[in-house]
Amino acid sequence: METLIIIVIGVLITSATYLLLSDQILHIILGSGVLTHAVHLLLMAMGGFKGASEPIIGHEQTTYVDALPQALILTSIVINFAITAFFLVLAYHIYQSSNTTDLRNLRGYRHE
């Protein structure tokens, strides 16, 4: 399973990189979202998929899956949400003030 997930990670990262290199603001926002998913999977894969049950302590003797990546991902999901929302509003305002979503048109002034 690890290999499969890692290959999926590779595909996600490729897609995210391509999106980030675009000139469209929306593509960049979506790209950052896809990249986040890739990183979540990466954290999961690095934690490994061993362990018999979910990390909630029960009565029977058992092994648990690694809880630490889960805690990290949980934090990441929420922060990613906040950042995506911020990007979105920013993009919206860029569109409102300059009527474009193409980053090539947004190079306001040539630096001195």
């Binding site: 929420v78 949400f81 906040a82 929302a85 979105l88 509003v89 919206y92």
Partner: peptide
């Protein structure tokens, strides 16, 4: 904090649009 922020975000965007 989560409720406050998420709703603030949604309301800001909704008001704005």
């Amino acid at each position: 904090a989560v409720v406050g922020v998420v709703v603030t975000i949604i309301l800001s965007i909704a008001e704005d649009v």
